[in-house]
Design a binder for these strands. Structure first.
Length: 110
RNA sequence: CGACCAGGUUGGACAGUCGCGGCCGGGUCCCCAACGGGACCCGGGUGAGGAAAGUCCGGGCUCCACAGGGUAAGGAUAACGGGUAACGCCCGCCGGGGGUGACCCCAGGACAAGUGCAACAGAGAGAUGUAGCCGGUUUUACCGGUCAUAGUGAAAAAGUGCGGUAAGAGCGCACUCGCCUCAUGGGAACAUUGGGGUGCUGUAAACUCUAUCCGGAGCAACGCCGUGGAGGGACAUAUGGUUGACCCGACCGUCCCGGGGAGGCGGCUUGAUUUUGUGAGCAAUUGCAAAACUAGAUAGAUGACUGUCAAAACAGAACCCGGCUUAUAGACCUGUGUCAGUAU
RNA sequence: GGCCCUGUGGUGCAGUCGGUUAGCACGCCAGCCUGGCCCGCUGGAGGUCGACGGUUCGAGUCCGUUCGGGGUCG
C-alpha cells in the first residue's frame, strides 16, 4: 500500500467516534482529515460478532477491501471502519459495494 | 458379509494472479565524529491447533530483602504397587458394578475413637413396645412376660431350619452371611481354606480422625532506556516498620501531601524439545547414539478472486511446558479382538 | 492474556443446618366496588431453581464438569 498505514492509537479512535459517521446494514464509517499525506485506517470488530475465528475473518476481509481499492481513496484522512453483525455472512462483492458507497457519502473518494 | 470393541494416524489437495508478519542475504538513500540506526526495493526460505479453547490441576520462570525454622488456621489428595520435574495425570494390579462378549465404568481411607443428622410415616430411627401372643388377678379392666407375626418407612436389631417355651427370643444347635484376628499364598492391596472371637444401622461430596502435600502473587509479573519533572512536610533508633496468618530469626530509615508522565526495548522462544535407531520394562516410562531447529506478533501476521476434485467439522498462538475436560465432519491403519448369521 | 464475582416466576430479591408443600414485592388475569376510570378489597395463574452428571433414602442447598452474564488489571 502506497500511502496508507494502520491506525493504532486508542485516543484517535475515540476522537473519530465523536464525528458524524455514515452507516448501512453492514458497516459504519467514520472519517476525519489528519493534515498529512497518508491515510490511517482502523478496523473495529466487536466481541458481539462472534468467536476469534469469525472476528479474524471479518477483519481480514475489510482490510483486503481497502487494499484492493486504495487507488480510489483520497490521501490525508483518518478512517475507522466498524463491522456490524451482517458482515459475518455477507459475500465479498456486496461488502465491497457497501464499503465504497459509505466512502462516497463521506466524500473521501477521489 | 454385518454389527461392534480397543489403540493409533490425519485434520482439505493442486495450479495461477495480487497481498501480510518474522528471519537470512544483497542493493539504493538518509542520519551520525564513530560504533551503529532508519526508510524503501530485490531475492531466498519460513509462518497457528489437536484441541491453540475452558483456565480445572501440576511445574518452570519473575518479583515479594532471604524463601530459613516452628506453630496454628485454611486448602488439596485418598485401595495397593510403580512411572514422572511434578500432579488431582498415566500404567499395572486388587476390590466393586455393567455387558452374551471383545471390553467398559467407579472421589475406592476410617462411622468397630467421639459428636451431629435421619423430615413424613411409624409404638419405636439406635433405642423402643402400638396392635397382637402368653400368664396371673380384685375380670367391660389392671399387672407381668415377649417381639415370632401384622403394619410404617429409604432403612426395623443377620438369614433359613430344627430344638426349646406358658408365649417367645442367637436362648441352644446345624448351615449360610458380615466384621475382627491368627495361620497359608502374594512385593502389597487382597484372596482361599482352616482355627478362634463377634453380630456392631446409614451418612464423612456432615463435623471430625488418620496419612501425605502446599509461603504468596502473577509476563498487564518483572528489568532497562527515554520523555516529562518540583518538590514540600512530619516523625525518628525501637512500645516503630518490612517480611501479605502468627512467633522465632533476619533486615532497616519510615510515613504523609502535591505535581507530571504513562512511549519504547528486553522478558520472547533451544526446550523435562522433536525424529530415527537400539537396549531395559507386561506397561506408563526410560538409558544410550545420531540427526534436526520447527511462529514469535504487540489494535496483534495465513486473506481475496478463478479453475478442477472433494463438498468437508470443531476452530486462531500472545511467557513456556506436562496433563485433564469440553467441541469436532470425513478418511486411513493395526489386532493369532468380540458377537451373530451364511458359505466352506 | 491473567484474576475474581454471579445465575431462583415477566422484573427485582429471600430461601438459615440438605427434609415433605420453593416465599415476598411490583407486574399479569378474573370478580367486587363505580354511571365509568384510577385507587381499594377478594381470589387466581405463572418455576425443568442456567445445563448435565454424581453423593444421599432425599439436592434450589453438597461435589464435579459445562454454558451464559458482569467486574477488574498498568
Amino acid at each position: 500500500m502506497k500511502f496508507s498505514k494502520s491506525l493504532k492509537l486508542n485516543h484517535i479512535f475515540r476522537r473519530l467516534y465523536h464525528t458524524n459517521g455514515q452507516a448501512n446494514g453492514y458497516l459504519v464509517l467514520y472519517a476525519r482529515p489528519n493534515r498529512s499525506a497518508t491515510n490511517r485506517v482502523g478496523i473495529t470488530v466487536g466481541k458481539k460478532l462472534g468467536k476469534a475465528v469469525v472476528r479474524n475473518r471479518v477483519r481480514r476481509r475489510l482490510r483486503e477491501i481497502y487494499r484492493c481499492n486504495e487507488h480510489r481513496f483520497a490521501p490525508g484522512w483518518d478512517i475507522v471502519v466498524v463491522a456490524r453483525s451482517r458482515c459475518i455472512s455477507a459475500d465479498f462483492g456486496k461488502l465491497t459495494d457497501a464499503y465504497l458507497a459509505l466512502a462516497e457519502k463521506l466524500g473521501i473518494l477521489q
